[in-house]
C-alpha cells in the first residue's frame, strides 16, 4: 500500500505530469468528436483549430513568459486592438510600405512591454495594476485613433490573409499559423536552451535565491514583459490578417483566454512552472470545445465559456494535487 502511494506520488510529482494530462484530454476530446461528428474526421477541421486561434497561440506564449516569473499582464487584448488599429490607420492614410508598418507596430509592442516591465520592476509595483493601466491606455488610444472600423486594403496584407498552405491532404493552414508555430518553437527553445530562459524559471522559482545566485533579476523581469509586449503586437499583426481591419473592440479580453489556455496547458500561476507545447494544447482544447458547439448547432456559444470554466477549476485542483504529491515525495527522502 505504502509502495503504491509512493509510485503514485512519483508519477503525479513528475515534471511532465500536467503536460500528460493536457495531452490526454486533447486526444480524448478529439476522439469523442470524431465518434460523434463526421466533420471531425476532415483534416481541415484540425487545421481550422490552428487558423482560428493563431493570434491566441501567440498571446499565450507571451503571457506564459510573464506567468513564469510570477507576474501577470492583462493588457494583451488591448495591445492587440491597438496594433490592428495602428496598422490599419498607417496603411490607409500614409501609404507606408506594409513591412515597415509591421516592423513599427512590433517595436511599439516591445516599447509598451518595456514601459510596463520597467514600472513594475523599478518601483516594485503590482503587475496587475500596472498592466490594468496599460489595458485602459491601449484600448483608449485605439478608440482615439478611430471610433469606427478602418478596413485594411493593402495588397500584401490581403494576399497574406488569403494564402493557403497545404500541410495535409485536404488540410491547409494560414500564414498566421506559420508565424504562431514559429513563435512557439522559438519560445520553447529560448526557455529551454538560453540563459535568459533559465533565468526566467529561476526567477519564478524563488526571486531572492535568483538574486543571491547572482542572476540579473531586474533585467530578466523587464525582459519577460518586453517578450509579452512583443507577442501581443505579433498576435495583433496575425489578428489583423484575420480581420483585415482596425476596430476599437477587437480582441476584448483576449488576455483572459490566454491565461486560461496557459493554465490548462500546465502553467503554474505562482510562477516557475510552464511548458510551452502544453500551452499550445491549452489553446487547442478551447478550440475543440468551440468546434463541438458549432457542430452541435443548437447550443449557445456561451457554453464554451462554461466548459472552459469547469476545465480551469479541474486544472487548478490538479495543480494542487501535484504540489502536494511533490511535498510527500520530498518527505519520503
Amino acid at each position: 500500500m505504502k509502495n503504491l502511494t509512493g509510485i503514485k506520488n512519483r508519477i503525479v510529482g513528475s515534471r511532465y505530469f500536467s503536460f500528460g494530462i493536457t495531452l490526454t484530454l486533447f486526444v480524448v476530446l478529439y476522439a469523442v468528436g470524431m465518434m460523434n461528428y463526421r466533420g471531425f474526421l476532415k483534416p481541415q477541421v484540425f487545421c481550422n483549430l490552428l487558423i482560428d486561434n493563431a493570434a491566441l497561440i501567440i498571446a499565450t506564449i507571451g503571457i506564459t513568459f510573464v506567468l513564469l516569473i510570477g507576474g501577470i499582464d492583462i493588457s494583451i487584448g488591448s495591445v492587440v486592438a491597438l496594433t490592428c488599429m495602428t496598422s490599419a490607420k498607417l496603411l490607409a492614410e500614409t501609404g507606408m510600405p506594409a513591412l515597415l508598418v509591421i516592423l513599427l507596430v512590433l517595436v511599439m509592442g516591445c516599447v509598451f512591454g518595456l514601459i510596463q516591465g520597467w514600472l513594475i520592476t523599478e518601483f516594485n509595483m503590482q503587475p496587475f495594476i500596472v498592466t490594468l493601466a496599460g489595458q485602459f491606455f491601449a484600448r483608449g488610444m485605439t478608440a482615439i485613433i478611430s471610433r469606427d472600423t478602418i478596413v485594411i486594403e493593402d495588397p500584401l496584407y490581403t494576399s497574406l490573409a488569403s494564402a493557403r498552405i497545404y500541410i495535409l491532404p485536404g488540410g491547409f493552414i494560414s500564414v498566421g499559423v506559420i508565424i504562431a508555430l514559429a513563435a512557439l518553437v522559438i519560445g520553447t527553445l529560448v526557455l529551454k536552451f538560453t540563459r535568459f530562459g533559465r533565468n526566467i524559471y529561476a526567477l519564478g522559482g524563488n526571486e531572492t535565491s535568483a538574486q543571491l545566485m547572482g542572476l540579473p533579476t531586474k533585467r530578466t523581469k523587464i525582459s519577460a514583459y518586453v517578450v509579452c509586449g512583443f507577442c501581443s503586437a505579433l498576435a495583433g499583426v496575425v489578428y489583423s490578417l484575420i480581420m483585415l481591419s482596425g476596430y476599437p473592440l477587437h480582441a476584448v479580453s483576449m488576455e483572459m483566454d490566454a491565461i486560461a489556455s496557459s493554465v490548462i496547458g500546465g502553467t503554474l500561476m505562482t510562477g516557475g512552472v510552464a511548458f510551452l507545447p502544453g500551452t499550445l494544447l491549452g489553446v487547442m482544447i478551447q478550440g475543440i470545445i468551440q468546434t463541438f458547439i458549432t457542430f452541435q448547432g443548437t447550443l449557445s456559444a456561451w457554453w464554451t465559456r462554461i466548459i472552459i470554466a469547469l476545465l480551469l477549476c479541474l486544472f487548478i485542483v490538479i495543480q494542487a494535487i501535484v504540489s502536494r504529491s511533490r511535498q510527500r515525495l520530498n518527505s519520503e527522502h
Binding site: 540563459r195 533559465r198 533565468n199 524559471y201 529561476a202 519564478g204 522559482g205 524563488n206 531572492t208 535565491s209 535568483a210 543571491l212 545566485m213 547572482g214 542572476l215 516557475g272 512552472v273
Partner: peptide, 15 residues
C-alpha cells in the same frame, strides 16, 4: 537559496 523548481544540476550551473 536555490530554486526549488529547477533541477539539481541547473541549480549548480545557472548563470
Amino acid at each position: 537559496n536555490l530554486c526549488p523548481n529547477l533541477t539539481v544540476a541547473e541549480n549548480i550551473f545557472i548563470g
